[in-house]
Amino acid sequence: MVKIEPFEVEQWMDLYEVTPGVLNIAETCAASVSINDLIALSEDSNTPNPLDFSKKLTYGSIRGSDALRERLASLYSVRTSSPLPKDNVLITQGAINANFLILYTLLGPGDHVVCMHPTYQQLYDVPKSLGAEVSLWKLRRENKYIPSLDDLKPLVKDNTKMIIINNPNNPTGATTPKSVLKDLVEFAREKDIVILSDEVYRPLFHGIGPMDAEFPPSILSLGYSKTISTGSMSKAYSLAGIRCGWIASRDRSIIEAVASARDYTTISVSQLDDAVASYALSNSVLHALLGRNIKLAKTNFAILESFISEHGNICSWVKPTGGTTALVKFEKRGVPVEDVQFCKDVLEKTKVMFVPASKCFGEEFKGSVRIGFVSETDVLREALKVLGPYIRETLS
């Protein structure tokens, strides 16, 4: 029997997000949109409704519709000399399924994996459950949670098969710069190691712009075939409810292997989900949707930044530059709070919900919580409005 650890962050969310009246700033998706919202965002009134109610609901295109795979391939082809073919994209039921399928297909007993940490627990505990050995590539607060290859290299072994990164990072909101990515690719190429980059929060960048020399490209654009990118409509595209994600790689053999393994699991993605995702990524909707979410992220970042500055004797952070999450440390007279109990107390007394970092990401993050700040702005404002008096009274 496979042994796998409890998925702490998902269990915490399941347990507490149903609290009546909760002010949820634990959620990691950019504030969700409806199909009506997508239609309203469309810059072309002639674009057909995403759902064709006359279409027979068969399994559909097993690997994903041509339209959806072509639109995703075009996103990976921006600023590259070699466009990505649509057949190098495989549609999955969310990024969580994409990641699982890759790990299930490529890893097993005798393999060694290096995984960025902190990150989404799936990325290091699923390889362990499959019999692989896992070493954690620690991100350091003093380095603004930017990974260092000096920390990575001693972790790599002769049997290292995969290096796993998450960019932008959950929970820190840090982005791995272009120069670090290029060095990582060259190192992996020398060692013939696969790189899996969970890019589920891409392209939601709010603290760094495309004209910045260190703006991080997708891992697929750096000229190494043994790279894999996973993504989703949930986070940057506000459509968690359609459960649509993908796997993309320059190495067609990886796509073929994963597609073969998937025959034993989900077969295909719902035609309805595929159609909504295709609509959201169409030229008439994509730019307005991303514009909405980047603006929301920047607006809410400023609100959270102001709150942390106002309560600088109680809380601190390393400012995130991408994604939807921030790791915020709370202290009482210089001593880190017991973050699990702190989160429970805050929820009970104020209805504000966030995630305890020590429980969900590791004991070294004791005293910190993960805040998902790209919620509806009114929700974030109200949550911080009631949180402020509480922490001033209990932690000052």
Score class of each variant (00 low, 15 high):
Gln11Leu: 14
Met13Gly: 07
Asp14Pro: 02
Glu17His: 03
Ala31Asp: 14
Ile35Ser: 12
Ile35Pro: 06
Asn36Met: 10
Leu41Lys: 13
Thr47His: 09
Thr58Trp: 02
Ala67Gly: 04
Leu68Lys: 03
Arg69Asn: 09
Glu70Cys: 07
Ser81Asn: 15
Ala95Val: 04
Phe100Met: 08
Tyr104Leu: 09
Pro109Ile: 13
Pro109Phe: 10
Asp111Asn: 15
Pro118Trp: 04
Gln121Glu: 15
Ser129Arg: 08
Gly131Tyr: 03
Ser135Phe: 00
Leu136Glu: 10
Glu142Asp: 15
Ile146Thr: 14
Pro147Cys: 10
Pro147Leu: 07
Pro147Arg: 11
Ser148Asn: 12
Asp158Ile: 08
Ile163Met: 06
Pro168Ile: 02
Asn170Cys: 13
Val180Asn: 07
Leu184Met: 10
Ile193Lys: 11
Ile193Asn: 13
Ile195Leu: 09
Asp198Val: 12
Pro217Ala: 07
Thr227Ser: 08
Thr230Tyr: 01
Tyr237Glu: 08
Ser238Glu: 09
Trp246Gly: 03
Ala248Ser: 13
Glu256Ile: 05
Thr265Cys: 11
Gln271Arg: 13
Ser278Arg: 03
Tyr279Ile: 05
Leu281Trp: 02
Ser282Asp: 12
His287Trp: 02
Leu290Trp: 01
Ile294Thr: 14
Ala297Ile: 07
Thr299Ile: 07
Thr299Cys: 13
Asn300Lys: 12
Glu305Arg: 14
Ser306Pro: 01
His311Trp: 00
Gly312Ser: 15
Val318Gly: 12
Thr325Met: 08
Lys329Pro: 02
Phe330His: 08
Lys351Arg: 15
Gly362Lys: 07
Phe365Gln: 05
Ser368Tyr: 05
Glu376Val: 09
Lys385Glu: 15
Arg392Phe: 00
Leu395Met: 12
